[in-house]
Amino acid sequence: MSQQSRPLPAGNRDGDGQLLITRHAPVDRVFHWITALAVLVLLASAFVPILGLKFSWVPLHWITGVVLTAAVLFHLLRAFPRLRCMWIRVKDFRDLAGGRRAAKYTLAQKLMHAAMGLAVLVVTATGVVMLAKVDTPLWQRNPYLLESDTWGWVYVLHGAAALVILTLTMAHIYFSLLPEKRAYLRAMIGGQMTREEAAVFHDPQRWSGQRKDDPRENHT
């Protein structure tokens, strides 16, 4: 029997009796929501004082930045072996042009992940360097770590990445709230979506929401 024709195993069902498939493991959902909260706090603590509401934003900003950096490092270590499911290929563009459904992630989801991922990597990398300018209980500030011009470029990269993250976060929240994309939001909260919901954008032969060791799963 071919891999494609094997019957799908029985699984959990929702209240209407529809088969539920797993989209996100609990650990990935916890990572997503910690990251989301950290990014929102960082955006607010960075930009609200610029808009005129003054408060002591530095401690909140750097502590939340450390949380985001830890979450990003955890995600890099955990997700790196599965990077190919997020890799953007020419095939993704051909699939979109040909009206073919995606595997686990659509081209739009991969592009959003790549753009947000790159911006977050830049903002965390520069943020870690900028910690040298903050007095904390763990270390004393050392503003002479870098030359003045180099500090300027670190701040430019940090600010530019933060502005990109602001735009992308607005778009990400908007798309997650669209009625036709609501299943993705539910899956990011509860982990699951129905097979019918998944089949709208995803080819069940390329991604069926089963275990990663299922031979039908290639995630690409």
Binding site: I50, V156, L163, T167
Partner: peptide
């Protein structure tokens, strides 16, 4: 001395979103 990105760009990023 270069201090960073201009915050004139904050409304631009918000407007782009």
């Amino acid at each position: 001395t270069l201090e960073g990105m201009s915050w004139d760009l904050l409304p631009v990023a918000f407007g782009l979103g």
